[in-house]
Structure formats: C-alpha cells, structure tokens
Amino acid sequence: MSRQQILDTLRAGLAAAPLVVPAPPARPASLPMGADAWARLAEVLAPLDVRLRLAATPAEAAQHVADIARERAATSYTRWDDMPPGLDMDDALAGLSRVSDLGGGCCHALAHVDLGLTFAHAALIDSGSLVLVAGRGRPRAASLLPPTHVCLVPRSALAPDVSALPGLLRGHADTAGLPPSCLNLVTGPSSTADIELVLVRGVHGPGALDVVGLDWDI
C-alpha cells in the first residue's frame, strides 16, 4: 500500500519534471602502484597513529606480531582461523592465551580479549584503509572488540584507492552472486572528537591498530 503510493508519487514527479543527468567527468586515474607502495601506505597511516612494520619473511612477521603483543601488554588474543598461508601465529603468540571457542556468542567471548589478529583482503594506499571481508573463520568482532587490532597485509593486497571496492565485493560474492554479509574498511583506530573537539583514540572499537606488511609473494 505505502510502497505503491510512494513509487507512484515518485513516478508522477519524474514524469512531470524529467530529470536529465549530465555525463560525469571521467574518473581521475588511480595513482600507479609502484615500488614505493609500502612507503606511501606508511605515510598515510602515520598521522592516524598507526605504525606499519614490514616483514620480508614469515619469521619476521611472527617476530613483529610478538613484539606488538608485548608492547601492548596483551595477555590474551583471538585470531581469524583463516590466515595467509605459511604463518604460524599461534607459535608467535605462544605466551598468550588464545580465545578460540566463539560458538556461544562471539561478542561475549571476545569482550575481554586483549588483542585481535586479522588480515586485510586489500589495503587502500590513498586512504590507508584496510579492507576486511567477514566470513567463515573470519568473525567481524575480532577486529572490533579487543582494544588492540593487529592486521596483516599481504603485498598482493595493496590497491590504490576506494575504486577497488566494487571489484572486492564482486570478487568475494558467493556462488549465487551474493556479496559477503559484511565488508569493513578500517582506517585507523576507533576515534571520536565529540567532547570539546578533542581527539580521543579508542572509543567503542580498538584504540590501537598495528599493521604488519607481508612483503613476499603469497
């Protein structure tokens, strides 16, 4: 009823006053992805208080993750089951307790975990955005509830800017063509400036975001 009325009103309006849409300007070309991609990503992340650590080997990546856990004084962690191949993150975080039984309510299970470890399906250099696609073994809450979020970025995930978004959503569609239930762009830590316009990191989401670049072919 309402549906039909709304659609009818819209159609009548457009019929009475057709709206002609001009051609848009061409989309400006994305910046080329050169050898300096990591450096540019680090530069965009720095003002967000995010440090990018580059690892040339899986062992180095493990070392970085262990360092971050120590620096952030984490005693427990959760991680996506799904991880880039060749990385043994449980070994890297052996001194911490892993919370992995999320069956009884993911948010409750993760509410008191110190560190969440995920990986990016893409990292957008223009904005420093990490693209996280939720799915089996990749809960949304892992990058949201713990006060520290550590995100691994494979070299192959580097992309110029948000114009990569449509391709990412289509690329992760299921066999029926349905996009994933949740894709997040994460750009820096959770933040607010609502009180007196003073920036505070870490209001509802993680106050700390650390990025480890996996600089080898995966």
């Binding site: 904005s127 420093g128 959503l169 997040n184 762009l185 750009t187």
Partner: peptide, 8 residues
C-alpha cells in the same frame, strides 16, 4: 581521507 569505519 576515509572515516575510521565503513561497513558494507
């Protein structure tokens, strides 16, 4: 350049 979180 981008808000902290964009959810699709």
């Amino acid at each position: 350049r981008m808000s902290s979180y964009v959810s699709v």
